[in-house]
Design a protein around this nucleic acid. Structure first.
Lengths: 335, 335
DNA sequence: CTGAAAGCGCTTACAG
DNA sequence: CTGAAAGCGCTTACAG
């Protein structure tokens, strides 16, 4: 029993018309009478005909696939921020009749500048790169003959198209909210030399302070070393009214630390996070935080990529997307 | 500037040989002299030739893609067990030169028995279904003309090939461990009428009790209603030595509850979970639990699917995979 | 409105 | 060892 699926040819023979006519009818093109068109469609349906996309692809030289590259190191044991992104990318792709192929980029391949297999096999029309990759890998990607869009990552020194969260503005809004609640003495937790996201978040926080004429020294509490490894830190004395943390995990840990010392959150001190990940809801109280707009970022990245594939436009540069403030219970509302 | 990529024809012309010869050389087939073969390969490399998989696919009638179907409802806001599974599936696929296409199955499509788009477009040679789908959707899938393997889901009443975690045996081993630590009075937390996983876990726990002649009544503490929604429950009085929970989240919540009542875990009472998800490491103390062996399950499921695609064997039935005991600090070691 | 011809990039027999 | 011919399932001009 060979799996011989039915083709346009089978339909054509049964109806004694040409394959061309069947093709036209099935793809709703002009040049077939309404009557015949209906008859062909009905028969196709009845025979369980399935369109063979590969034939079309070969004709057009388009695979109708895009590649999604995510470095292995970003897929943690527990959290999987980027896998969730991939879900939204997949859904954004639906509207274009495209599919996404996932490739987990190993450290070896990244270091050895090995391009994804789906590229070498001509399986994709373009690529989305999720998260930070090395400078030389960026270059290797840019030198391929298909379009590339970077998602959630931006490199100042490369001329790449990328869709990123507007960390600066989000931290600004978040801090504005904290100030609106009546807090004045507000600290930032995060090492601004670790990543450019943290840096931008710090600057957004600082902008808010400046605008409200809270002339604090623009200082930060370092929660990790420059490799990103968490380190222990001392709480400022006296304690500020509120802490703006660079991510929810740090906020979660800070709250535990504060509670062990006998402080109540938010009654004695307020804390906000960033990301709206699982730590935000597991924490008690639950965190006021900021959420990356994955669906929107995915939609924009895909739109840009498809446009590039279709030669609509060549350069897009850095596209920031606004994140959403999520208000919960970790900030005390004074007065 | 048209994206005109180079083909075997280009190579053939440059070297003044036939396309057939180039094809043979590039795929390391017999019938070309070593010398010519090397020359062709070198030129292909130099010209940046990329093999066009679509042409091969069309010839063979195989897409070298498989479809991964995961119901939308299983992709939670925070946890994404099945997305992580998909990562391992993708990696297992590497060895076969295959790719995975992800389709999030909407409730509407499941209810309306709409098959995934990649099936209608003949883009996949087989499908992996992740997690439970409705009885009638199973049937619809089984009636397609491509092989299907179910992963992490089994239906007693359908004749399906599926790869599942051996919940029964895992819970048995976990309970054995608790008993080995010196505990005698052990309770089970979980509604055995909610899912068949919970039921199997309960039975594994019960088998361990029986074998150790701990003639407790085989009772359970119901943590959720039969729709799976968590409900509040009363702790048994007197408190048992240990609780075997049906999942880490329930264990996490139980520990918080116990600690609020002034009990210390594990000094006063021991608690074990199941899944080794984020709750296991966030909990204090961290949970002794059981971890689903995703890489192994993925490898087996893919192997079965590829075999079915290649007509090696038709039926595999229910394939249980052993889970791994993860020992941490939530069980007190008596004596 | 209908269809014969050519082609997308390869591979598989088969012949020399 | 080398290659001409046919075919995978479709679509795109083009001709009638």
């Amino acid at each position: 029993m060979v799996r011989k699926s039915i083709t346009m040819k089978d339909i054509a023979e049964k109806l004694d018309v040409s394959i061309v006519t069947v093709s036209k009818a099935l793809s709703d093109k002009d040049g077939v009478s309404e009557e015949l068109k209906e008859k062909i469609k009905a028969l196709a349906n009845q025979m369980g005909y399935r369109y063979n996309t590969m034939a079309k692809s070969m004709k057009e030289g388009l695979s109708y696939n895009i590649g999604i590259v995510v470095p292995d190191r970003f897929i943690g044991k527990q959290q999987s921020f980027y896998l969730k992104f991939q879900k939204h990318i997949t859904q954004a792709l639906e509207n274009y009749g495209y599919y996404g192929l996932l490739q987990i980029l190993s450290p070896d391949d990244e270091h050895g500048l090995v391009l994804p297999r789906f590229y070498s096999e001509k399986r994709v029309d373009g690529m989305i790169i999720l998260g930070q990759v090395s400078k030389s890998y960026i270059e290797t990607l840019q030198n391929t003959d298909i379009p590339v869009v970077f998602l959630d990552f931006y490199d100042e020194h490369s001329n790449i198209d990328s869709v990123i969260t507007d960390n600066f503005y989000a931290a600004y809004e978040l801090t504005n909210y904290v100030i609106k609640c009546g807090h004045r003495n507000i600290a930032f937790v995060g090492n601004i030399h670790a990543t450019s996201s943290i840096q931008d978040r710090f600057l957004g926080y600082y902008k808010s302070l400046i605008e409200h004429q809270l002339n604090l020294k623009p200082d930060f509490i370092s929660d990790r070393d420059e490799q990103g490894l968490y380190i222990d830190y001392e709480l400022p004395d006296p304690l500020p009214d509120a802490f703006v943390c660079n991510c929810d995990e740090v906020a979660y840990n800070l709250i535990q630390k504060l509670q062990k010392l006998g402080y109540r959150v938010p009654e004695d001190v307020s804390v906000v996070g960033f990301d709206n990940d699982i730590h935000a809801t597991l924490s008690q109280p639950q965190l006021t935080t900021v959420e990356v707009d994955m669906p929107e970022m995915s939609r924009i990245a895909i739109k840009i990529l498809i446009n590039k594939i279709n030669k609509k436009q060549k350069e897009y540069g850095r596209v920031p997307v606004t994140a959403k403030l999520v208000i919960r219970e970790s900030v005390k509302i004074k007065k």
